[in-house]
Simulated scan of single mutants.
Amino acid sequence: MTTPTILFVPGLRDHVSQHWQTLLQAKLPSARSVPPLEHDKLSRAARVAALDRALEAIDGPVILVAHSAGVMITVHWAQTHRRPIHGALLATPADLETPMPAGYPTTDTLHEHGWLPVPRAPLPFPSLVASSDNDPLCAAPRAAELANQWGSLLVELGAVGHLNPAAGYGPWPMAQTLIDTLL
């Protein structure tokens, strides 16, 4: 069997140099990432199309590794595309239906750009939702609810914030462990 290609799906802030996704991709020579958008950065349709283009460029099996709004990009993509996916790690999804802290898009802005409602249908591939007890962008019970609706296995990480540099993550070694469970 061919080893799956790891495809990273960043959130709305795209590629952050000290983010665990960026750091892990640098360690995995065959891994790829959905490239940042130049235009329509808040457009759900543009983000889903970028994910689809990145997938079209990969032959063979794929494991998606999504973070924050990248989880929502992945979930929206799965509603309308049928390319087989080997599995997905969905780390600290952003709850786009609940108002977020200052500095993030408002619920009205997200609705206007096609993000709402958040899909609730089961995903057509195996998935893990890694959630945080103190994520400012998604309460733990909400992450558990989404995992259940998507048919994902819930992995509770404890108090890791939003699992980004602002929460003290740079490297996140557990990501590789979780990816390995999907192989």
Rank of each mutant, 00 (worst) to 15 (best):
I6W: 13
L7R: 04
W20E: 05
L23R: 01
A26L: 10
K27M: 13
S30L: 10
R32S: 12
L37R: 00
S43W: 03
R44A: 15
R44Y: 08
A49D: 15
A49T: 06
A49L: 04
A50L: 04
E56G: 14
E56V: 01
E56L: 14
I58W: 06
G60Y: 02
G60Q: 05
H67C: 02
G70F: 11
T74D: 03
Q79T: 14
R83I: 02
I85E: 10
G87S: 12
G87Q: 12
L89M: 04
L89Y: 08
L90Y: 01
T92S: 10
T98P: 00
T98V: 03
G103I: 01
T107A: 10
T109L: 15
H111Y: 06
H111I: 00
G114W: 12
L116E: 15
P117N: 12
V118L: 14
P119R: 02
P119D: 03
P119V: 01
P119M: 08
R120I: 08
V129R: 00
S131Q: 06
S132Y: 03
D133G: 14
A139S: 12
A143I: 01
N148K: 13
Q149N: 15
G151Y: 03
L154S: 12
V155P: 06
G158T: 00
A159M: 04
N164S: 14
Y169K: 02
Y169M: 06
W172S: 07
P173D: 15
A175Y: 05
Q176H: 09
T177G: 06
L178N: 10
T181K: 07
L182V: 00
L183G: 12
